[in-house]
Design a binder for these strands. Sequence first.
DNA 1: CAGTATCCCTTATGATACTG
DNA 2: CAGTATCATAAGGGATACTG
Lengths: 234, 234
Amino acid sequence: MGASYYQFCPVAKTMELLDERWTMLVVRELVGGDRHFNDLRRGLPRMSPTLLSKRLQHLVAAGVAERHKSGVEVRYRLSPAGRELAPIVAALGAWGIRWIGELGDRDLDPKLLLWDMHRRVDHDAVPAGRTVVRFDFPAVPPSQRTWWLVLTPTEADVCDADPGFDVTLQVTADLRSMTEVWLGDLDWSDALRSGAVTIQGPPDLRRGVPAWFKLITFATVPRPDRDQRPINSR
Amino acid sequence: MGASYYQFCPVAKTMELLDERWTMLVVRELVGGDRHFNDLRRGLPRMSPTLLSKRLQHLVAAGVAERHKSGVEVRYRLSPAGRELAPIVAALGAWGIRWIGELGDRDLDPKLLLWDMHRRVDHDAVPAGRTVVRFDFPAVPPSQRTWWLVLTPTEADVCDADPGFDVTLQVTADLRSMTEVWLGDLDWSDALRSGAVTIQGPPDLRRGVPAWFKLITFATVPRPDRDQRPINSR
DNA sequence: CAGTATCCCTTATGATACTG
DNA sequence: CAGTATCATAAGGGATACTG
């Protein structure tokens, strides 16, 4: 439990609960709906399972989250109180996308990017049948360089190993540019025109790709005027 | 600087900046407007000056706050980016007042209560001239038991020592009840009727007291239905 | 008023390996 | 899938005293 501030102020009481490292990110993951422990891990790859477990226990004990066990399966979800944190998480993200400046190289992560993208696939826009998109980030170390997204009108799976299906489309991208596209800081069209992102495959499918992925929810947040400076996140 | 999460997610980047202990409370203080270092200290009495200084430096370095020096005087205020945190602080407080259950005894603090109240005096409602209200919290240790509020149509001062003026009104209160009134959890009228708070002095002035203080801004936030349980803040 | 200087010490957390 | 166990390190932070 975070140490107390010994203040009656509701802001202080709320932050006692939420200002511990990682806590808000766990909530962020839960805002998306029910989650298995290992789903949460995939969205929080740098968090140790011990710590995730601890945070979840806190949130459950506090009444912000609930743990539902059916058989061997465990699902975490937000309680009614926890669900009311959703607008706060949204506001934090909107603030961040407005004011945080350039990302550090260390903030770029193909694993998280693909994991995020697969959650925002627009299944109505994806072709019937199975579409396999292979992503390559040439500048990234080999172990994180290549990813497969297997898309169907009902499902989306990320693989870090070749799933064995024929590749429908090959996307080759600069990781930073692809991330900027995802964040709404760079248009797909600009990224493709500049060559920062290239797509190989049947032209009709190729042109469809940008519509298959809804961007991060914060992508549409209006940015500050140019004369306002971003803050220094580092 | 808070450790990085190594995520491009705007929520993560924002929390890198804001999830360190005390940071959001410093922002909360700054949301009220310009503040001197020692004003901030009064609103954050359990924070060491070293740590406050460190947090302010972080916020300034990040571009969330600004340090303005005129002569020997220093004032801190929020930058444009920082000002956009105001709705987030408000949302955190609103969430807290809805969902946090009973406060612990350690969360009650006459010093903070009076400091808060003096900032929310409705000067239009206060009598002309000088009004001195003495507050007594009989159950509190002597050093924190007695406070004076000196009110005029333009100013409000808190004193922990007798300022020497004639006392106009004497308020004697149970600290928890007075805090509940301040938070909007207990009506003035109920507190007075039950005797948890008593006011002595000229009847016409006495009756005016509740109007002299605007309650904490979160006081009017609607509370959850009774069947929804508060969370456990401890 | 506006901070620094110390100092000690808990505890938070990262990393890794392992279990039912 | 859903976590525990262990461990060593860093560092975050509380308390207090002091300065220009």
